[in-house]
Nucleic acid binder design. Structure first.
Length: 192
DNA sequence: CCCTGATTCGC
DNA sequence: GCGAATCAGG
């Protein structure tokens, strides 16, 4: 498969929408997420335009490619070259006068814009949603990477654990993390 | 283990 | 230009 105009367009679109590389790859078909990421970089739209949202890591600092343990036949860089030495820093802070290029054509379907949150009803809805497809794992079935969100009444037989795959080191799946970690709320109106 | 994107480098 | 292999992290 080659990167036809259409495919590139789809890539741009999806990437712009915040889709993950793997999802894009899956959508396009015939390419791996690596290919997608590689293309993204080549296209120069590595960061999700806007203001550096999402994963803003990958600090362009010196890439420490430390001692290849094994003779590393593949990698033979040893490029100790860096004539131009700038104090680094390169603070890409507030774009005072950016307006470089405004994305978002016209009818963009609302980019995911997380902001204040107080148990979004969506989160709850999401939970109900996923609970239907929960694996209903028993306590013994739980592993490090299964959602440990309890469902049902522990005092009855109708009790099980979500069991869906968790994503990062979290104890719950994406959906449950949403409702589990509530920033702050209940504190409020404890009026008396 | 699952996933994410980032980078490198042979092709 | 391409993307697998690798890296780095949640």
């Amino acid at each position: 498969m080659s990167w036809t105009d259409e495919r590139v367009e789809t890539l741009k679109k999806m990437w712009g929408e915040g889709q993950s590389a793997s999802q894009i790859a899956k959508e396009l078909g015939g390419v791996t997420r690596n290919a997608v990421i590689g293309k993204v970089h080549r296209l120069g739209l590595s960061n999700r335009a806007g203001g550096g949202t999402t994963t803003a890591k990958a600090a362009p600092k010196e890439k420490a490619k430390p001692a290849p343990k094994k003779a590393a036949p593949k990698k033979a860089p040893a490029k100790a070259e860096k004539a131009d030495d700038k104090p680094d820093a390169a603070p890409a802070v507030k774009p005072a006068t950016p307006a470089r290029k405004a994305i978002i054509p016209a009818g963009q379907p609302l980019p995911p814009q997380p902001s204040a949150n107080e148990i979004s009803p969506e989160a709850l809805a999401k939970v109900s949603e996923i609970e239907k497809s929960a694996k209903k794992l028993g306590l013994l079935e739980l592993t490090e990477r299964t959602c440990k969100w309890p469902i049902g009444d522990p005092a009855t037989e109708d009790f099980w654990f979500c069991g869906l795959p968790v994503q990062a080191g979290k104890p719950y799946c994406e959906a449950h993390v949403g409702v589990a970690f509530q920033p702050m709320s209940s504190r409020r109106d404890r009026k008396r």
